[in-house]
Design a protein around this nucleic acid. Structure first.
Lengths: 331, 331
DNA sequence: GGGTCTCTATGCATCGATGCAAGAAGCCGT
DNA sequence: ACGGCTTCTTGCATCGATGCATAGAGACCC
């Protein structure tokens, strides 16, 4: 900036004024400085500005695994929403390491990011976060700040209701575990069963903490290989990755989906519409999540809302019914 | 840092010395300062350090679309490799916007990132980049700096050879277009055919620039719906997303894979092993790409290599043969 | 003419860290 | 006792931008 100032024969401050569209700059001056800016190819040093202003123009997005399609699609939505606000996105992955999550909640990213979006974590903390922080998904562990996500109980009820309406009665929940996302989904599943006067069959519960295709495949494969009688007539996978693995296991055992066993999931991955048969899935509105989260984050950043209070916002979702749960001989 | 200095009754500079493990600090002093650091919960301001040192500790990763599984998996690998070096990763998406890519090559991220990894772009430029810059994948357009990726001609030959060895002769390339990645893959396909004395059948080429499941689905669906005779006996999809869409279209038309038509792809997405039938796919070694790219980037950052010369490094890949190309009645 | 007001351009201090170089303290050899 | 050396600590300037305050130039009013 000093170079530009020298070149244009004005003060550094004036160059800054031009760059920032300060009101009191004469047209003549603006053009002269602009010419120098262009000629020298000036690029703002955002680090220096960040030091002075206390803002970096960056937000951090923290997810367990970027390679999981759900988080990839979510990240994409966040990047889009951030771009609309002129913010760049720094992505960190935690691999579900609670210690790392805790450090981040405590403010480890405070100096590089103006705010943090933390997704689906395991860490618990009672401390007030030291950065503007918005939690995505379920975080049973803390009651501070903004929590954005779908109502998982309601979402699970919606999927379950669909299966029940299709006539399926022996439904196996897939992905049962004690993680913060699994618990409310199982809850919703049970709630809906109860509403229909159906008692959950403990033996049908398919437990795994590995919510990947491999996890779904392994669990369902074991179930089928066991040769035990009393197979479910439908599988409600707690996410689509599990469902895709389950589908593979079912096909491998020659089981027709949905004629013999129906499958439904949650996330509505891009992939899910292109497997065979196309997967019925509940789609969280990722753009809604991203937009809502960034709005909440900005309110924290400019001090409108505080970080102590607990605010929960549920975002929209939509059930995509596809062939994996229709055209079957349900019972 | 000033607060810590006051609290410990020492100078700011000494605190800095302790934080940076400067050699000439007495043990006594180190402990006293460390106590104050801990007590006050000091966190380094990386922005300020960045201003002084000219390094931000961040690299930018630029990809067209994060939601595409390949780029998600690549990003994951880059984040891991960067973490090993103590670098954070800022992710930008371009949606293949050439103007944006060009701005990035010119150094738009120079002040926020110490270096840039730019993946699979369309932009052409002859200017020397103004940031340490490593290009990932094919970038026909520029001859500056480091280019890291698999040898796409060889990769395509490898897949094609596998199909030929399995006995397939009427192979349809899927994803034909004039993008920088498609061209060498088609080249390799033709090269291998030629080596076997087979002339490519123009009519079999399945052209699309949309390398997503939808793109693959649409093209193959149109082919099958056309009712034209002379279907291929195998499809070589230029990436797995295309292949997955193709699989869906084939199944929908009641075509058995691989008995009637075999399918192979490139990328080896996590998903690809869990579709039905599991997809034969050529796996680029993403960790190798990320590691090689970051090594090259660091050499540029510390000035060991310059940004003018052209350096191309091919990374490892491995063909995963699965059922989508085996156990068929090839011809 | 003098005072007030608006518009424009500038100087200086500052954000939080580190490079540099000098100062202080202790030790050794002669 | 004194210079020379090593070890340890510190003050000051600096990175590149912006906040604040103010000075100068006109314009306008009484």
């Amino acid at each position: 900036m000093r170079d530009v100032a020298d070149h244009a024969g004005v003060s550094v401050r004036t160059v800054s004024n031009v760059v920032n569209d300060f009101v009191y700059v004469s047209e003549e001056m603006r053009q002269k400085v602009q010419a120098s800016l262009d000629e020298l190819g000036y690029q703002m040093d955002y680090v220096a500005r960040g030091l002075r202003s206390g803002r970096t123009g960056m937000i951090a997005l923290v997810v367990p695994q970027l390679a999981e399609p759900y988080f990839a699609e979510l990240s994409q939505a966040v990047i889009r929403a951030a771009a609309r606000r002129g913010l760049a996105v720094l992505i960190e992955t935690t691999n579900n390491d609670p210690a790392l999550e805790q450090r981040i909640m405590k403010g480890a990213l405070a100096t590089v990011a103006d705010g943090v979006l933390l997704s689906a974590g395991a860490a618990t903390t009672e401390d007030e976060p030291e950065v503007p922080l918005v939690l995505l998904g379920e975080h049973a562990a803390t009651r501070h700040g903004d929590h954005i996500g779908i109502d998982n109980v309601l979402a699970a009820r919606t999927v379950t209701r669909h299966l029940l309406e299709q006539g399926y009665r022996r439904i196996a929940p897939l992905g049962v575990s004690d993680t913060s996302t699994a618990v409310p989904r199982l809850q919703g599943f049970h709630d809906e069963l109860a509403a229909w006067g159906i008692r959950p069959v403990q033996r049908l519960a398919l437990a795994t903490t590995d919510w990947s295709p491999r996890g779904g495949y392994d669990v369902v494969n074991k179930l089928l290989a066991s040769g035990k009688p009393g197979l479910p007539t439908a599988i409600f996978a707690f996410n689509d990755s599990l469902a895709l693995g389950a589908l593979r296991a079912l096909r491998q055992h020659g089981i027709d989906v949905p004629a013999q066993i129906a499958v439904a999931g949650i996330d509505n991955l891009e992939q899910s519409a292109f497997v065979d048969p196309p997967l019925t899935s509940l789609a969280p509105d990722l753009d809604d999540i991203a937009e809502t989260a960034l709005t909440a984050l900005e309110l924290q950043m400019d001090g409108t809302t505080d970080r102590t209070a607990y605010r929960r916002k549920d975002t929209a979702f939509h059930l995509h019914v596809r062939e994996s749960t229709t055209a079957g001989n349900a019972q």
